[in-house]
Write a protein that binds this DNA or RNA. Sequence first.
DNA 1: CGTATGACGTGCA
DNA 2: GTGCACGCCATAC
Length: 87
Amino acid sequence: MSEFEDKVLRIVKKIPPGKTMSYKQVAEKAGSPKAWRAVGSCLKKNNNPAIPCHRVIKSDGSPGGYNKGRKLKIKKLKQEGAQIKEL
DNA sequence: CGTATGACGTGCA
DNA sequence: GTGCACGCCATAC
């Protein structure tokens, strides 16, 4: 696993319930403020159950995508109380 | 090693 | 406000 992936997964894993972080924010904390592209690519390949990747959304507040289905992602976010544009 | 793609973001019409 | 195009990093082939 690359260092970047480890950082990203680590940060996403640290996202508290009811909160959401944009890919850019995660990339920034990962050490590469311009690697949000890789963040999504990395998460989609590392859909680890310990990683609440559904809490990672786009900067505009949209849920973006999800390996298990965007709908499920939205559902989980709403269930946790996360504010997204699907409300 | 080089090319193509992606769960994106920003800019412009 | 919406739609299209370009740019970016990392991964896969």
